[in-house]
């Protein structure tokens, strides 16, 4: 009589669905290759990323057998810098997103479980956070700081990005907290902490996973933008953003400096988005035909 939603909670089923989705497979492969490349960077790098090889003769050397991605205005090997910068960019993005998720999930759970008054207050704070454009917030915060070490950049990125996650988790918790199976757990005498961790949080994890995967792509781009503006990752430490920024001045004469990291950036962001979409589809409940 009723249609049946299949298996939204069975991770084996979800993994199976991801494995049969060509887009997710391709995206996963691209990401895995990219991560492997930047992790193995120090071994693969032909040169050291900070080394100015020959400031008189090797400035803006076009790609060649010795320098696959050419050299920059300080005669540094672009490939070596891209590999090293990728480590920084990906590490900054994933750490920032982890902070986003941690703060957002805790805030959302607390708000979802709280009484009306506290819930309203907590959500007004989230609304306030969402109402200010994140880029403006970041510019204001980072510009006001005398120096921005990488850990601080990560923290600032993370703490400006959790509002959406909190709202998402709170919404999921509110929808599910009246569900029969949550009532059943309450009727069994489950403590609030047990309810939150065993019954409410797992329900929100799927959407959070999708949102945070997409957020990684977003933060990579944000970090690149900030670094390009000079208030993100500080030179000489490379990141994809500041390498692109370095090369931007010479985009007409030496396009390879920006193109290499730019290509990597686009590839990773596309792969992350595709994987996020694939996850979303894999997590969606499916309907059997109504019979």
């Amino acid at each position: 009589m009723t249609s049946i939603a299949l298996a939204s909670g069975d991770w084996r089923v979800i993994a199976q669905r991801l494995r049969t989705d060509r887009r997710s497979l391709l995206a996963g492969a691209v990401l895995a290759a990219m991560i492997a490349l930047v992790l193995l960077g120090p071994l693969l790098s032909p040169y050291r990323p900070y080394e100015q090889l020959d400031i008189t003769h090797l400035v803006h050397a076009p790609p060649s057998a010795e320098h696959l991605l050419g050299t920059d205005s300080y005669s540094r090997d672009v490939l070596s810098r891209v590999l090293s910068g990728g480590r920084v960019s990906l590490a900054v993005a994933t750490s920032a997103v982890l902070i986003e998720v941690l703060v957002g999930v805790l805030w959302g759970l607390a708000s979802g479980l709280a009484g009306r008054g506290i819930d309203t207050l907590m959500m007004r704070i989230v609304d306030a956070g969402l109402s200010v454009p994140r880029v403006l917030l970041l510019l204001a915060l980072l510009a006001a700081m005398p120096s921005v070490p990488v850990w601080l950049l990560v923290l600032v990125l993370g703490l400006t990005g959790w509002f959406g996650t909190a709202r998402l988790v709170r919404g999921e918790v509110r929808t599910i907290r009246g569900a029969d199976y949550v009532l059943a757990a309450r009727a069994l005498g489950a403590t609030p902490a047990r309810l939150a961790l065993r019954h409410l949080l797992p329900h929100a994890l799927g959407p959070v996973l999708v949102a945070s995967t997409l957020a990684v792509g977003q933060v990579i781009v944000l970090e690149a933008g900030l670094s390009w503006l000079g208030i993100g990752v500080q030179p000489p430490q490379p990141s994809w953003g500041n390498i692109i920024g370095d090369g931007y001045e010479f985009i007409a004469s030496a396009p390879w400096v920006s193109l290499g990291p730019g290509f990597c950036l686009v590839l990773v962001v596309l792969a992350v988005s595709a994987l996020g979409d694939g996850l979303r589809d894999a997590l969606a409940p499916r309907q059997l035909p109504r019979t």
């Binding site: 298996a7 909670g9 069975d10 029969d180 199976y181 949550v182 757990a185």
Partner: peptide, 12 residues
């Protein structure tokens, strides 16, 4: 409960 679909946690 009445509804055998809603009363079990689908993730457990």
């Amino acid at each position: 409960f009445q509804d055998p679909y809603a009363s079990l946690n689908p993730r457990m």
